Every structure is written in structure tokens, then in C-alpha cells.
Simulated assay, not measured.
Amino acid sequence: MISVIDDEVEVLRGTSSLLRSCGFDVATFTSAKDFLHSPSNGRSACLISDVQMPGMSGIELFAALRARQDPVPVIFITAFAEAPVRQHIEAPVCVLQKPYQAEALIACIERAISVQPET
């Protein structure tokens, strides 16, 4: 399952539709806190998260997951430049600027899922 977290309903709708058309199971959330309190937390193969959201940002979500030693791959989507996002994250992650190309997102997901540690 791919979890998509974004406070923009249109982005959630478009991203989930794209991913479902590619054969992925998708869960959507309008906030990082909603995701953290959901059954999908701990079951997602990959997260796609907006960076700027009310309440908890995508970067804060990433930090919270890593603090719990949750290695789930995270793909960030942002309306801002990539470099400022990367300076807050000490890990190799995919960062896509909005609007992003569907092919770029799918490539990021495929890379993220292919490097998942075995359980």
C-alpha cells in the first residue's frame, strides 16, 4: 500500500487516481497526524508526503517516523525548491516539485519499494 499525505484535496485525488491506475493500493490522508493515527501507519510500503502542511509538516513526519525507527521510504512533493527540503533531511529521499511528472513519481516509488529491507 502507498500512503499519500497532502492537505490539498485535489492533489490527493489526482495522485491516488494515478497510483490506482498503475495497480497500487492507496490510502490518502489530509494531514500527517491523521496518517500517524491510522491503521496504515506501519503498513505502508511507501509514503508520499507534501512538505508544507498545517500542523505537522512532511519533514516533521519524516523525523517522527525515523525517531521510532520506522524505515518506510518517503517521497516528498513540494511547491518549493528541492534544495531547502533536502537540507532538513539527512537521508537519500526523492523530492519532486509540484507540478511533477507522473513518470517521475512512479520511478521514485519503484526505486523506494525496490530498496525495502526484508522483514
Rank of each mutant, 00 (worst) to 15 (best):
V26Y: 10
F29K: 01
F29W: 02
S31A: 08
S31G: 12
S31Q: 06
A32L: 07
K33V: 12
D34Q: 05
S38P: 04
S38Y: 04
P39R: 12
S40H: 06
N41G: 00
N41P: 00
R43E: 15
R43A: 15
R43L: 10
S44M: 05
S44E: 06
A45H: 14
A45S: 15
A45N: 14
C46L: 04
L47V: 02
S49N: 00
S49E: 00
D50W: 03
D50M: 03
D50T: 06
V51N: 02
V51A: 11
V51R: 08
V51I: 13
Q52R: 14
Q52C: 09
Q52S: 09
M53T: 05
M53H: 03
M53P: 02
P54W: 07
G55Q: 10
G55W: 11
S57C: 09
G58N: 06
L61G: 04
F62H: 07
A63V: 04
A63E: 10
A63S: 10
A63W: 05
A63F: 03
L65S: 01
R66N: 07
R66I: 04
R66D: 08
A67I: 00
A67D: 07
Q69M: 13
D70I: 10
P71A: 13
V72Y: 01
P73T: 02
V74M: 01
V74R: 00
I77A: 07
T78I: 11
A79T: 11
A79F: 07
F80G: 07
F80T: 05
F80I: 07
F80E: 05
A81N: 08
E82T: 14
E82W: 04
E82C: 10
E82S: 11
E82N: 12
A83I: 14
P84I: 07
P84T: 14
V85G: 08
R86Y: 03
Q87D: 13
H88N: 14
H88L: 03
E90G: 14
E90D: 13
A91L: 08
A91S: 15
P92K: 15
V93Y: 03
C94R: 11
C94F: 10
V95W: 08
L96V: 11
K98P: 02
K98G: 10
K98Y: 11
K98R: 13
P99E: 09
P99K: 09
Y100W: 15
Y100D: 07
Y100E: 05
Q101S: 12
Q101M: 10
Q101I: 09
Q101V: 10
A104G: 01
A104W: 03
L105Y: 06
I106T: 05
I106S: 05
A107Y: 01
A107H: 05
A107T: 12
A107Q: 11
A107F: 03
C108R: 13
I109G: 10
E110H: 13
E110I: 02
E110M: 06
R111T: 14
S114A: 15
S114L: 09
V115S: 11
